[in-house]
């Protein structure tokens, strides 16, 4: 397969997005504001870790080395992770958790819907499962955006701050590099320029309903495609990789 190396990297990116945000959300287990929300956020986390497993397993099959999805998940250094910067941002207050979920899940819904049409059968299969799950994540986040944005003065204030803080990480969703370009011309990857318009349209409506506004600034953070991350990722990895690093090949 001519595009094998690019496809491997594409799988890492998709797997890492799910793995890192799944890990972030798992931090809320038993700490969410109330029981139902605890169930919701950890269910979303579980969906994501399952998705990470599927993409990283496929990556391990594409790799020339004899590695498993666990090796990929737990034994890479920080600069070999390719998750979007927004997925590694801290949970913060509930407003930050929700705004992050909102931006990510609306993007993921449209992205995976498009990926179901990929010529790569494995990617299309994982995407067709994922899109059904993400639909729930998106509705969950959208409901909260409206409820909190159009809620009390305090909830509105916090939501607006979260939007200001996280908006700068949304530009990365639509970046295309050589991996995307090569796979796009092979009919495998998604054309993210087409997703951008849908995403914008879909986030504006609930934000308006929630009386929230988009920030005035246009500067966007970037780096994850090259393995350049914010300070947050190192902290996640130190916890996530600890066991496999301290006790290589440890099994339950």
């Amino acid at each position: 397969m001519e595009t094998k190396n690019e496809l491997y990297k594409y799988c890492l990116r998709l797997g890492d997005d799910a793995l890192i945000l799944g890990h972030r959300l798992s931090e809320l287990c038993s700490k969410a504001p109330f029981l139902e929300e605890d169930l919701a956020l950890t269910n979303i986390s579980l969906d994501m870790i399952g998705r990470a497993q599927a993409f990283l397993k496929y990556a391990s099959e594409l790799s020339d080395n004899f590695i498993t999805e666990d090796d990929i998940a737990y034994r890479r250094p920080e600069n070999e992770y390719y998750n979007h910067l927004i997925t590694e941002q801290p949970n913060g207050d509930f407003a930050h958790t929700i705004v992050r979920q909102f931006f990510v899940s609306v993007f993921e819904y449209h992205f995976f819907e498009a990926l179901t049409k990929s010529k790569d059968k494995s990617l299309a299969a994982i995407a067709s499962k994922t899109v059904k799950e993400v639909k729930y994540h998106m509705e969950h986040a959208t409901d909260w955006v409206v409820r909190l944005g159009d809620g009390t003065e305090e909830s509105h204030r916090r939501m607006q701050i979260a939007i200001e803080d996280l908006w700068m990480y949304t530009g990365e969703f639509f970046e295309m590099d050589y991996v995307d370009d090569i796979l796009l011309s092979a009919g495998i990857a998604v054309d993210k320029s087409l997703i951008k318009e849908k995403w914008m349209k879909e986030i504006i409506k609930p934000l308006e309903e929630a009386t929230l506004i988009l920030p005035a600034y246009t500067h966007m953070q970037t780096g994850s495609k090259k393995g350049i991350h914010t300070e947050c990722l190192g902290h996640i990895l130190s916890e996530m990789q600890y066991l496999q690093r301290a006790y290589p090949d440890a099994k339950w």
Partner: peptide, 13 residues
């Protein structure tokens, strides 16, 4: 509906 997400991935509350 109390919650879209329930005790397992496949159920709502």
């Amino acid at each position: 509906t109390i919650s879209r997400f329930g005790s397992t991935a496949c159920k709502s509350l």
